[in-house]
Simulated scan of single mutants.
Amino acid sequence: MSALPRVGFVGAGVMGLPMARRLLAAGHRLSVHARTPAKVAPLIEAGAEPTETPAQLAADSDVIIGCLLDEKAVQEVYLGPDGIIAAVHAGHLLLEHGTFAPRVARDLAEQAAERGAGFVDAPVTGGPQRAYLGELTCMAGGRAEHIEAARPLLAAYCRDISHVGPVGTGLELKLVNQLLVSVHVAAAAEAAALLGRLGLPAQLAKSVLMSGWAASAMLDYCLPVALTPSTVPTGATIGGLSAVQDAVAEISSTVDLPLRVFPAARQVFTALTDAGAGSRDIAQLARAYDREQSAHAPSSARVTSHVTSSTAEAN
């Protein structure tokens, strides 16, 4: 592989777009594909080359990088008609940054290997702002030689790159990360709701809480946003995290580990998503505790009683 391989990028969403921009800025020839062409328009304007299908993207690249939304998108782009897998050959390297079930990554790796190609599951954490700054954390699962070959590319937008183990283990660690994020967001939502109900000063409360053991990245982010209600869709949404929680529940069941705290937090996300609030920022989970919503929302959104139960089981 040359020092600057030809790169194909698919999945230019809230996270993928800044990642792809940084690859262009690093001097890579970049081909792009999107199921929604408007999403890659800024990249094409910046010098990326459009492709009509995932298969064409693969044929035009040495390394194919994906940052796809969910498992459905991964299945469609990699295995659907004109998908990536059908077009790869010996020497190709596939990196997927999306968050989905580890079993899917293992299946993709097997199919890629049958064609002589490598596959790495490489989920990232840090959010859109750290993607723009090139400071993401990547947890990679795959063969050591594949991950080492990918490091120069990953370095364009990742500050830390950790090889976790074989294919699928990067996603397993990311799902543990998402379990913690889910619980921390739910806890921050309850804290924000209680602060509001008690009438305590928000900025002072945040300063005190962030100075001790209660501190967390989600508390730091969620408290001020939760206390300023907004319906503007963002990259970190209630519905988006709710969808990933299905995969968290799945892997916990595969190792026969009955979770107790996570299912209670998950119920809050599920109820608000079902009530039509899935596009709201994760900090707006605090709306589950609003008096007005509790009084007027459908029963599926009246979640206060649900979150007090520590015996709820994962679906």
Rank of each mutant, 00 (worst) to 15 (best):
L223H: 03
T169C: 04
A288W: 03
P37Q: 07
G27T: 15
P233K: 05
G8L: 08
P5S: 09
A295R: 14
Q56P: 01
A87S: 12
P201W: 08
M19F: 10
S2C: 05
V7N: 00
Y157M: 06
I282L: 14
R159V: 01
A105V: 10
R21N: 02
V181M: 04
A59L: 14
S294C: 08
E148H: 13
A3Q: 13
L175N: 03
R291V: 15
P224M: 12
A189S: 11
G66E: 09
S299L: 13
P233H: 06
P50W: 08
E145T: 09
A38V: 07
G165Q: 11
W213T: 07
D62H: 13
A55E: 10
L30T: 02
G47R: 12
L136I: 01
A191Y: 04
Y221R: 10
L179G: 00
Y132V: 05
V255I: 14
A283L: 03
L17S: 08
L23G: 01
L30Y: 01
D274Y: 00
A38S: 14
G118D: 10
P81M: 03
P224E: 10
P81E: 14
G240C: 02
I85D: 01
E114D: 13
H33A: 09
A117C: 05
E114W: 02
V268L: 14
Q245M: 15
A87P: 10
L94E: 11
A73I: 03
Y157P: 08
Q293E: 13
G127E: 05
A226Y: 12
S279M: 05
P201V: 06
A301L: 06
A202E: 11
E49D: 09
G118T: 07
I85L: 15
E190G: 06
R130A: 10
V225G: 00
K174L: 04
V40I: 15
I64N: 00
T234L: 04
S61Q: 07
V244Y: 13
M1T: 13
L200N: 04
P258Y: 09
V74H: 10
L68E: 03
I251K: 12
H296V: 15
R106G: 07
R29D: 05
A215Y: 08
V255Q: 10
Y289I: 01
A283M: 05
L57T: 14
A3P: 02
L194I: 05
P18S: 05
I238D: 04
P50I: 12
A109T: 11
A87W: 12
A283Y: 03
